[in-house]
């Protein structure tokens, strides 16, 4: 298992190399002078053309493309991702600022949607064909078809503006630091994001549960005279768990990349929000780096999926 994980991590390196190469290529092809986003912009004004040339020399910009790529890569490995064009802040600093907010929102949403979606999926599967099943399934379908931004705005105008129960947006008030201080800000975006994910999890876990319950080993379990709860939970649900884990796992990277719409609607200072501003202001280095981060997230998530699948399914050996 441990060797498998190590091997997988090693395998990520070539993939990251390819992706980072493509991204670097993208950066090279974007309009503008490479030097301009390699030096802190607040120093930019004081630099003369000769100095620029010297910097170019010292940065190796006169070198070949491949050489420059490796120099850039070496910097990236050390945490130097370059500078954002618009804010002039270093990109690693932006990540440090924005990532915790996005992770907080995503983890909350994933937890809520997984627990709620699986529970509803299992209930509808067990009561298939009943009024509960039909109501929840139709509800889920409606949920899937309502756009996030509409749902977000509706929740915002009702709970925040109309009722005033929760803050309108943002994440932190000055002077408030702990998680509990932030919680009221988190509730609305996390719930809206979670609900939009719940419908999918519900549908999926309903199907997985029905599939598990139709297997022959469930009949064997019944033939042993086990009580219904044990048949459903230990034999049905336990087996339905694997595909649900895979589904949730596949959603991890999407959430780490930031749910753009929700972050925008709720003015949540996360990666997604940053991404929108970066695209809007044509801040290519930042856009590319967020893309690289998302790729990394996809790779890590698929590793997590594999590990979890191996944990819950003894047939899978790592």
């Amino acid at each position: 298992m441990l060797t498998y994980i190590l091997r997988r991590i090693l395998l990520m390196i070539p993939m990251l190399l390819v992706v980072s190469f493509l991204i670097y290529l993208g950066l090279e092809l974007t309009p503008g002078d490479a030097v301009s986003y390699m030096i802190p912009p607040d120093l930019g004004g004081q630099i003369s053309p000769e100095q620029m040339e010297a910097i170019r020399e010292s940065l190796g910009l006169n070198k070949s493309f491949i050489e420059r790529y490796f120099i850039w890569l070496w910097g990236a490995v050390q945490g130097n991702f370059g500078y954002s064009l618009s804010g002039g802040v270093s990109i690693s600093q932006i990540f440090l600022d924005r990532l915790p907010a996005t992770l907080e929102l995503s983890i909350a949403a994933i937890l809520i949607s997984t627990v709620l979606g699986t529970a509803l999926g299992v209930i509808t599967a067990l009561k298939r064909g009943s009024a509960t099943d039909i109501t929840l399934t139709i509800g889920g379908m409606i949920g899937l078809s309502i756009p996030d931004f509409f749902f977000g705005l509706a929740a915002l105008s009702f709970f925040a503006l109309e009722l005033g129960w929760l803050p309108v947006g943002g994440r932190l008030m000055p002077g408030y630091e702990t998680f509990w201080d932030r919680l009221p800000h988190l509730i609305l975006p996390a719930t809206v994001l979670a609900l939009s994910l719940t419908a999918g999890v519900m549908r999926y876990s309903r199907a997985a549960m029905l599939d598990a319950l139709s297997q022959e080993f469930v009949r064997t379990a019944r033939a042993k005279g086990l009580p219904e709860w044990r048949v459903n939970v230990l034999h049905g649900f336990r087996v339905a768990l694997t595909p649900v884990i895979v589904l949730v796992g596949f959603r991890l990277p999407f959430l780490i990349g930031g749910s753009v719409v929700i972050e925008k609607v709720f003015q949540w200072p996360g990666v997604g929000n940053e991404f929108v501003s970066a695209v809007r202001s044509q801040d290519y280095p930042l856009v590319m780096m967020i893309a690289l981060l998302s790729v990394l997230a996809v790779l890590i998530a698929s590793l997590i999926i594999d590990i979890l699948t191996a944990v819950v399914d003894p047939r899978v050996r790592l």
Binding site: E216, F217, T220, A221, L234, R238, V239, P314, R315
Partner: peptide
Amino acid sequence: DPMKSLNPVY
């Protein structure tokens, strides 16, 4: 079918 009548995860 003994392949299918035992639960694979136990």
